[in-house]
Deep mutational scan, measured.
Amino acid sequence: MDTYKLILNGKTLKGETTTEAVDAATAEKVFKHAANEHGVHGHWTYDPETKTFTVTE
């Protein structure tokens, strides 16, 4: 398992979190669910070198 990071750049919610996942696709599902639960919808990017997802509203 690897550690993946999410950076939230929402209009009303900003922050960072991490998750352990077997691959980037699994981490993305976890992060998108969490972002949706917090009402953050926007443009997603992924940097494979740093294993970091970013969502920007």
Rank of each mutant, 00 (worst) to 15 (best):
residue 52 T to I: 07
residue 24 A to T: 06
residue 11 K to A: 12
residue 51 K to A: 03
residue 33 H to K: 15
residue 32 K to L: 10
residue 51 K to H: 07
residue 21 A to S: 06
residue 10 G to N: 04
residue 10 G to L: 15
residue 27 A to L: 01
residue 25 A to K: 10
residue 47 D to M: 05
residue 25 A to F: 10
residue 52 T to G: 01
residue 38 H to I: 15
residue 41 H to C: 11
residue 40 V to M: 07
residue 11 K to W: 10
residue 17 T to F: 15
residue 38 H to N: 10
residue 53 F to W: 04
residue 23 D to C: 05
residue 40 V to Q: 03
residue 20 E to C: 13
residue 43 H to L: 14
residue 5 K to V: 11
residue 41 H to Q: 13
residue 28 E to N: 04
residue 31 F to S: 00
residue 3 T to N: 05
residue 49 E to W: 10
residue 9 N to R: 09
residue 28 E to T: 03
residue 19 T to V: 14
residue 52 T to E: 04
residue 42 G to Q: 02
residue 22 V to W: 11
residue 50 T to A: 07
residue 5 K to H: 12
residue 48 P to W: 07
residue 56 T to W: 09
residue 33 H to V: 13
residue 33 H to E: 14
residue 54 T to L: 05
residue 46 Y to L: 02
residue 15 G to D: 08
residue 56 T to D: 08
residue 49 E to G: 10
residue 30 V to L: 12
residue 41 H to N: 12
residue 5 K to Q: 05
residue 1 M to T: 12
residue 16 E to T: 11
residue 11 K to Y: 10
residue 41 H to Y: 14
residue 56 T to K: 05
residue 44 W to D: 00
residue 40 V to P: 01
residue 53 F to T: 01
residue 50 T to E: 06
residue 52 T to Y: 03
residue 27 A to Y: 00
residue 13 L to I: 15
residue 2 D to N: 14
residue 31 F to E: 00
residue 22 V to Y: 13
residue 44 W to M: 05
residue 56 T to L: 05
residue 26 T to K: 05
residue 17 T to Y: 15
residue 2 D to T: 13
residue 8 L to V: 12
residue 11 K to N: 11
residue 55 V to P: 00
residue 48 P to H: 08
residue 44 W to V: 02
residue 13 L to C: 15
residue 43 H to F: 14
residue 42 G to N: 02
residue 25 A to S: 09
residue 33 H to P: 02
residue 38 H to E: 08
residue 29 K to I: 12
residue 53 F to R: 00
residue 57 E to C: 08
residue 54 T to F: 07
residue 7 I to V: 10
residue 34 A to W: 15
residue 48 P to C: 05
residue 8 L to N: 01
residue 4 Y to A: 02
residue 19 T to N: 03
residue 12 T to D: 11
residue 38 H to F: 15
residue 54 T to A: 05
residue 20 E to M: 14
residue 4 Y to L: 03
residue 8 L to H: 03
residue 47 D to Y: 06
residue 4 Y to R: 02
residue 23 D to T: 04
residue 22 V to S: 11
residue 20 E to R: 12
residue 51 K to T: 02
residue 27 A to M: 01
residue 40 V to C: 05
residue 22 V to P: 15
residue 29 K to L: 12
residue 28 E to V: 05
residue 44 W to L: 03
residue 3 T to Y: 07
residue 56 T to Y: 08
residue 23 D to N: 09
residue 10 G to C: 12
residue 28 E to P: 00
residue 21 A to C: 08
residue 10 G to Y: 07
residue 4 Y to P: 03
residue 55 V to D: 00
residue 1 M to K: 13
residue 31 F to Q: 00
residue 3 T to W: 10
residue 25 A to M: 10
residue 46 Y to G: 00
residue 36 N to V: 11
residue 36 N to I: 13
residue 55 V to A: 03
residue 4 Y to T: 03
residue 52 T to W: 02
residue 5 K to Y: 14
residue 30 V to S: 06
residue 53 F to A: 01
residue 34 A to Q: 13
